[in-house]
Amino acid sequence: MSSDLSDLYQEVVLEHSKRPRNYRVVEGHNREAAGHNPLCGDQLSVTLKVEGDVIRDIGFQGQGCAISKASASLMTGAVKDKTRAEAEALFERVHKLVTEGPEGVDVDALGKLAVLSGVSEFPARVKCASLAWHTLRAALEGRGEAVSTE
């Protein structure tokens, strides 16, 4: 496999895409949003239980490519028990990572999400990696309507 391909489809990415974590509707959720990538037809929904300013629980469901599923799965693990501001800051870092690459990004602060760094070599796949995050942001902002990557 060429090196940029193996950077994109890292073990962790493949594993999360096959066995996504928190693939469920959160019981008693008080926030939700749907996301859609009209270019490829990917759709996912995010449900949250927010207490005060803290994300106490998060789940997602939907269909998509390995990148979008893995990104969503990793996201749910990363933002649990985080405040809204912390989740937003994480999205900013992830977005910079998948669009510009790891340089200038505090990769340590990203934890497992760092495996998404390979996406930056594949501009056509940036939207796959960011769909879940846009949907999370819409849910946090209380926008019930579907968000679109377009």
Binding site: S2, L5, L8, Y9, C65, A66, F122, R125
Partner: peptide, 13 residues
């Protein structure tokens, strides 16, 4: 059950 986008990306390489 591999998503077509993943198929397309790998073929493109």
């Amino acid at each position: 059950d591999i998503h077509p986008h993943d198929v397309g990306t790998i073929l493109d390489r």
